[in-house]
Structure formats: structure tokens, C-alpha cells
Design a protein around this nucleic acid. Structure first.
Ligand code: FES
Ligand code: FES
Lengths: 154, 154
DNA sequence: CATATTTAAGACCATCTTGTCTTAATTATA
DNA sequence: TATAATTAAGACAAGATGGTCTTAAATATG
């Protein structure tokens, strides 16, 4: 798998938050309900994103989480880096230590190119890009397509 | 991680076998020694490659494993498919079921492109390609670079 | 035929990821 | 201030992956 489940959940939650026009706090419970993700598990993941300042949180009633920066300034690679780390984008495809330094492996040339494509894709895509696309095409971020990109004004 | 450890080990062993000019049986013990991989674990992996007819094996003294087809006719994607399956090359980046069919996810466009790059790379690269490159550049397929692409004529 | 060597098969354990649960700390609101 | 709602923190369980070990089956060789 390219990305861990934690990372995928984190991305989907970030998209959810970026789709909220007014940047109010939204409870993790609501997110987990709407995206059909285990609430406790999602809490742990979003705590990590809060720790690295991608989100900010508030406790208590009316509390929740929200993006700390505008959605068009957050790229996917930041979420991947926060949760899965940069290993995918730096390591040897054959698992050998120190990709690129000194002797590379025979796959290095091909993999370095491919890896750059992945990296570029993650670096060039912002949350807002995906939200825009999602709203226009009514695309899904849940298994059953239940999430409908409603502007959340509550 | 892009590929599982099993898959990486299988690839490195396949490269090892493809580097042997005369296509004699080579014992898994020797491979595991030269590539510094746990012999029992490697045995299990190579059994899988034998099961799908990428390798053939013989028991007993002078036995071992060897490529069933010529190295220039075996592409990396076959090894990946045999060990990790095709999930990486068919599934949704956000983990949603049925990528591409019906409603895609917002990442689909970008991911489908990137995924095709990975697929193309794996499909276009043969074991012989990598062996040639490895021999020319004296590249490594072990952590410490101890494997030296000697023609094995024993 | 007896023996040693090798792969085949599968039980078993360790480690990592995923997911659940409990408790504590914080905070809006009546 | 008391209460309820919420995030924070971390223990714990379940499942997947990685890795070890034992036994069986096959086979070359003396
Ligand atoms: S050294 Fe193997 S991919 Fe760079
Ligand atoms: S539907 Fe998500 S990547 Fe294709």
C-alpha cells in the first residue's frame, strides 16, 4: 500500500475540514460519523496533525478541530510527512540503506524518477484543489459516497 | 512503504539468479548467504515464486532454484504481482472501494496518473535490464555492497 | 540401499499497524 | 459552581506482516 490507513484517514479528515467554508471548530465525533471512521482512532490521528500544527483544537463544548492554515496553503505531502514520514519519498526501492548516496542499487535510476513523480504530485496538490474538484464533480470521500460536500454553516 | 519486505527480498533474489550466466540450480542457502537474508524466510518467499512458475526448483544435493524463463522475459511487475498482488496498481489512494468505477475520489485523477508511472516502470523493467546495469556500474543489491556480480560458473 | 542435502509445508513467535477503551484535563454554558 | 462535552494521553487488544523453527518429502551420491 502506498499510504498507511492512518495517513488516508488523516487526509480524508483534512479534506473534510477544508470543505468547511467558515473555519469553525468541528468535533472529531462529527467528522468520524460523516466519514465513517472509528472515532477513537481518528482522534489519535488528528492529535498528531494538531501536534505538528496542521490543525488546531479546542476542548469542551463547541470545541473540536480546524485547519490552522488556509486550505490552499496546505499540500498533501505535509499530511503524509506528519503521519507516515518521508520514507516513501527518500528510501531505496530495494530497502537498502542510504538511497542515492555512494553506490546505488540497480533500480535506483527508475525508482528515483518514479518517486519524484509521486513527490511532485503530493507537493503540487493542495487541500483546496481537491475540495474544489470534489465539489464540482460531487466526488466521494467515503466508501458509500454519502459525504456530499455541503457547505457546513452550523 | 511501496513494496513489502517479502517483495523486496524476492526481487533481490530474482536479480541474483538472473545474474548467473549458466542457468544452473543455486541453493537458497547460498542466495541467503550472499544477499544477507534470513534463509528460512527467503525459502518461503521463493517457494511462492516457484508456485507461480517464475522459478523452478529441485530438491536434494545439487538442487536449488533457478529462473524458469529467461531474465529478459521477466518484468518486475510479475514479481510484485506474485508477492504483493496488484493492489498497489489498482486501488484507490484514499482506500475507497472500486477505484475509478462510478464515483471516483478527488485524488483519482492525480493518483491514476502517478500509478500509471509506477506500473509502466515495473512493466518496462526486466531482470536482465537491471543485471546489465548492475554489472556495468558494479551496483549493490546488499546493504553493504558485498555482492559483486561475479559470473557464477560453479 | 544408506546418507546427506536440499526444497516443501506449516506451526509458531515477534513486531508493527490498526482499532478499542478508559481516564484525565479543559472549557462553554446553564 | 456544577455539568456536560470535548480533546489529550495512553493502556490494551486484534490483526497483519516479518521472521524462526521443525518435520516431511525428494534426490544425488557413495
Ligand atoms: S539506492 Fe535503491 S532506489 Fe536508490
Ligand atoms: S477512486 Fe480514489 S484514486 Fe481512484
Amino acid at each position: 500500500m502506498l499510504l498507511s490507513k492512518s495517513c488516508i484517514y488523516g487526509m480524508r479528515a483534512a479534506l473534510y475540514l477544508a470543505s468547511s467554508s467558515n473555519n469553525k471548530y468541528i468535533s472529531i465525533k462529527q467528522i468520524s460519523n460523516d466519514l465513517d471512521i472509528s472515532p477513537h482512532f481518528l482522534t489519535k490521528i488528528l492529535q498528531e496533525l494538531t501536534r505538528v500544527d496542521l490543525l488546531e483544537s479546542q476542548k469542551g463544548p463547541t470545541g473540536g478541530v480546524r485547519l490552522k492554515r488556509a486550505g490552499d496553503e496546505v499540500t498533501l505531502v505535509e499530511i503524509v510527512a506528519a503521519i507516515d514520514g518521508m520514507d516513501l519519498l527518500t528510501e531505496c526501492a530495494l530497502g537498502l540503506p542510504g538511497c542515492g548516496t555512494a553506490k546505488p542499487c540497480p533500480l535506483h535510476e527508475q525508482w528515483a524518477d518514479t518517486r519524484d513523480e509521486i513527490k511532485k504530485m503530493l507537493q503540487d496538490t493542495t487541500l483546496s484543489d481537491l475540495v474544489r474538484k470534489g465539489k464540482e464533480g460531487n466526488l466521494r470521500i467515503t466508501a458509500d459516497g454519502s459525504f456530499d460536500w455541503l457547505p457546513k454553516e452550523n
